[in-house]
């Protein structure tokens, strides 16, 4: 540990916090807090990207950091808060599996992800290759968040958290994706968010709630 330079130590701490935030999102029942956690996760991603850009001198990382700050820390959470206020959905229902069990499944997922990342990070040559396991774990945990929730709102938050994980993974394996891809992904997420926002209103108009269970029954069955 003493051999590692101080900025890499900070990066490691940020990576650990990133993982911790994923877990708190998994446990969180209040949708407003969930969105705030997402914003904090974006903030950590932003700090990590800036630190990595400063360390490696790759200028395009500054750009993607600015993109992260604008979109994931300010833009999307603000949009989500607006939607929550308009749709008046402050609470998620009880998750499908009880929280302690979800946590334990999450732990198994983290172990799996770390095992999965080991051969990949052995091949990578970046200074941050160790954090790849954390990125994969965050992606899978976001999946789990989406699976264990019923409401459309929290599923979208899970989706955005997964995008954060992907970004972090690209950063730790190859110092970020090419600029074109990054811009494309950012635009995709923004558009997806806007479309989903419209969807929310349509879903609510149809079913009087955002509970996705209603999707599982066919109309003729009623």
């Amino acid at each position: 540990m003493n051999g590692i330079p101080f900025d890499l130590q900070i990066l490691n701490v940020l990576a650990a916090l990133f993982l911790l935030l994923s877990f708190s999102m998994l446990a969180q029942r209040r949708i407003v807090t969930l969105v705030n956690l997402l914003a904090i996760q974006g903030l950590i991603l932003f700090i990590a990207t800036v630190l990595l850009a400063w360390r490696t001198g790759e200028t395009h990382l500054y750009l993607s950091a600015a993109l992260t700050l604008g979109l994931k820390v300010i833009g999307l959470p603000w949009l989500l808060h607006q939607l929550i206020r308009k749709l008046d959905v402050y609470w998620d229902t009880e998750p499908l599996i009880n929280p302690s069990a979800t946590m334990l499944i999450g732990l198994l997922i983290v172990i799996f992800a770390f095992g999965l990342a080991q051969p990949i990070s052995a091949l990578a040559s970046t200074a941050t290759r160790n954090t790849l396991g954390i990125a994969i774990a965050v992606i899978l945990l976001a999946f789990l968040t989406m699976i264990t929730r019923r409401k459309a709102m929290s599923q979208v938050v899970g989706f955005l958290s997964m995008e954060n994980g992907l970004f972090f993974g690209a950063m730790s394996a190859t110092y970020g994706m090419p600029m074109v891809v990054e811009l494309g992904v950012a635009l995709d997420v923004l558009v997806a968010m806007l479309v989903l926002g419209v969807f929310f209103f349509q879903i609510r108009e149809q079913f009087d709630s955002l509970d996705l269970r209603h999707f599982e029954t066919l109309k003729e069955d009623e």
Partner: peptide
């Protein structure tokens, strides 16, 4: 989690 993070990052 602390243990896993220690194993992965060596920190």
């Amino acid at each position: 989690l602390g243990m896993l993070v220690h194993l992965l990052l060596g920190a």
